[in-house]
Structures are given as structure tokens and as C-alpha cells.
Amino acid sequence: MRIGVPREIKDQEYRVGLTPASVRELVSRGHKVTVQAGAGAAIGLSDHSYKSAGAQLAADAREVYGSADMIVKVKEPQPAERAWLRPGQILYAYLHLAADREQMADLVKSGAICIAYETVTAPDGSLPLLAPMSEVAGRMSVQVAAAYLEKPRGGMGLLLGGVPGVSPGHVAVIGAGVVGINAIQMAVGMGARVTVLDRDVDRLRRLGLVYGNRVVTLHSTADSIERAVLTADAVIGAVLVPGAEAPRLVTRSMVSRMKAGSVVVDVAIDQGGCFETSRPTSHSDPTYLVDGVLHYCVTNMPAAVARTSTFALNNATLGYAMSIADKGWSRALKEDRCLLAGLNVCCGRVTYAAVAHAHGCAYVPAEQVLA
């Protein structure tokens, strides 16, 4: 199979779909890999390292898209890139279509086979290709909150961990999935007071066994969320409904009564955000104020630590990429229900129920398309 790796063009997105080591694995299996020149340069992956791994270099993205049977990316294709997709071409990347109607419509129109990292689902219900970036974003969320609580950055001027004789900051984490667990780990490590809210009592029980009285666990209800948010100095939105829009759990009214100079980090923004006041931002312009509360809603947080993120992502995505390349997309999906769950758009049809529901469009089960 001919595999293409374009340079990412989303604002300050420095991750790359395949590392040289991943290219070497694919080339060794008889596949041809074309990488856009400079795709990994920003994170120390030189064109020479790709050539040494067996890749061919292309001068521009159009050449990559034009020559490839499968495009391997990190973030969703931008409008200019979507125009280069063609019927039957495979797109393998993060897509987050439930919160992006325009992208969904373009992918349907393209006729491409679009496999979304974020909905590939393991037998136990976990999301193996979303997990590594959730780990990164969860850990980053508390670093970001700590930084933006500083007065020069617009916060209230609070040191999250406190000092002897001064109370530490209070971090509320809404959601105890992969993002939430990693946020909790960082917040506890910094010495903050931590409250976590989730509807899964067994998950809260496990957190209690790990952290004891260092973390307050609350069953997530509108009342408990309101009480936690109004007393918090930083709130981490770590809610996920796989493939669907995130529920808006923190209302505008709640935000209006939060502490002035407090910080919101909405990690769920890729799926629309879990704060009613959230809107997507970029690394170039990451924050905005609503009622005195600083909002950080960057849609590609892990790009700030792009080298770590790229290697972590490749560890998870390479195996499925090899399966698609070795078997072809149809056979690979038929033989692996985990990968089948990643099929969001196929040959002009929406094949993921939550995406179709989010946009009120027709849904065709993936199994039916393959049949």
C-alpha cells in the first residue's frame, strides 16, 4: 500500500503521523511511505531520518495526498486538505466529527474511508488510540491551570501547591476517565486540594483506595458539580462520551458565580466542551475571559509537547496502521471489531451513530457498508 504522511497545518500543531521508526516497520512489510519534507523537523525528526528509514520525500502536501492510498495524520484535515481527499482513499487520524459539522460534510462528500482514532474501541470498552493523548492532556491540564493562575497571565495570583502557612489551591476535576485520572495525579503531586466528580461509583471507590483523604470523591450531579465549581480555583473538564458531543455540565450561571481569576481548562473541547461558556481556542490565542473566569480551551493541547505526544501516539496507532496496510481497509475492519468502531465515514455515508445523531443526518451501520 502507498501511505502518505503530510505535515500538520493546524495552528501550532507539530506532531507527525508516523515517526521514522514507524516508517521503517511499514517499509519492511513492503509498503511505500511518502513523507512531506519537514513534517517532523520541529520535533527533531529530520528528513534524513525518514529517508534512512526508507521513506520517500515529497515537496508539498498535494503530492502526498495525490500519491497515497492511505493518509496517516494526527489532527483532522483542514478545509484545504479535505479538498484533496478522493473516493476510496483511507484517512486515519483524529477527527472529532460530532463537534464539526463542516468537516463531516466534507468527508462525506469526498467519498473517502475515514477511520477516527478516538472511536477505535477495545473489547473492554477502552479507547486505545485516544488514551495516550488523554494521558498527555490530563497531565498538561493541571500544569496549564497552575500557570494561568499566576497574576501576569490573568489569574488570581495563586500558587496551586501553597506554601507553609498558606492554603493550597483547590482543583475540581469533572470526570474520572483517563484525562481525569492523570489530572488528579498531577494535582495531588503539586500539593493542591483535589475534588473529583464522576457518576461511576466503583471508579470513585478505586480512587479513594489509591489516594485516601488526599482526594475528595463526589458522585456527579448538578448539585455536586455546582458546589465544587463555586469553591474551586481551577476546574478541569475531563468528560467524554465516546464519539459524541460532550455534555454541558457547567452552566453559564455557575461560571458567573465562580471566583474572579479562577481558571477553567476544558479538555473536552474537541467534542464541543463540557462548559456552556467554552469555545475552541488555539495555542496562538489560548485563553479568554467570561465573567472574570479565565478559559483555556485549546483543541490540540498535546501539540505543546509534540515530541512526547508523537511517540506516545505512534506506540498506539502503528499496529492498526500495519493491519490496514497489510490487509486493505475492508478486510482489516471485518476481522477486527475494535478497528471497525473507528469507522466514522465511509464512501459517502456516516457510519458512527453518535456522529449522525449529533448532526441529524442518516446513519448507516459500518457492518452494512462492509457487507
Rank of each mutant, 00 (worst) to 15 (best):
G30D: 06
H31A: 11
D326F: 12
A244Q: 08
H357E: 15
R307F: 03
D124T: 08
V166H: 12
I184A: 05
V267R: 05
A105V: 15
V33G: 05
V239P: 00
G4D: 11
V250Y: 00
V74A: 05
A332C: 12
I184N: 03
Y92A: 03
A356R: 07
G54L: 02
L26D: 06
Y94V: 12
E245T: 13
L370Q: 10
S49C: 09
A39Y: 06
T299A: 15
S46D: 03
E63P: 01
C297G: 04
V255C: 00
R307T: 02
E335H: 09
I174T: 01
D124F: 06
S141C: 11
L370H: 10
A80P: 12
V298F: 04
S67M: 07
S224Y: 02
I269M: 14
D291G: 02
S141Y: 04
A145S: 01
Y148K: 03
D106Q: 06
G177F: 05
G180E: 02
I174D: 01
L289H: 01
Q89P: 10
R24W: 06
N182I: 08
S284L: 15
S256T: 00
Q103V: 11
H219G: 06
S220G: 03
Y50W: 05
E245G: 15
R62V: 14
T317S: 14
A332R: 08
D285K: 14
R199N: 06
C347K: 14
M254P: 00
K73T: 07
S110T: 05
A362Q: 14
I3V: 14
A183M: 02
A93N: 05
R139E: 03
G328K: 10
C114P: 10
D11E: 08
K73A: 01
P128Q: 06
S224G: 04
E245F: 09
S282T: 13
G30S: 08
G360N: 11
V364S: 12
R153K: 13
C361L: 13
A41G: 11
V64Q: 04
A147T: 13
V171P: 02
A147R: 12
D69M: 06
E367K: 08
E13V: 08
L127I: 07
A176F: 01
G88L: 13
R24M: 09
A366P: 14
I269T: 10
S282A: 15
Q143A: 13
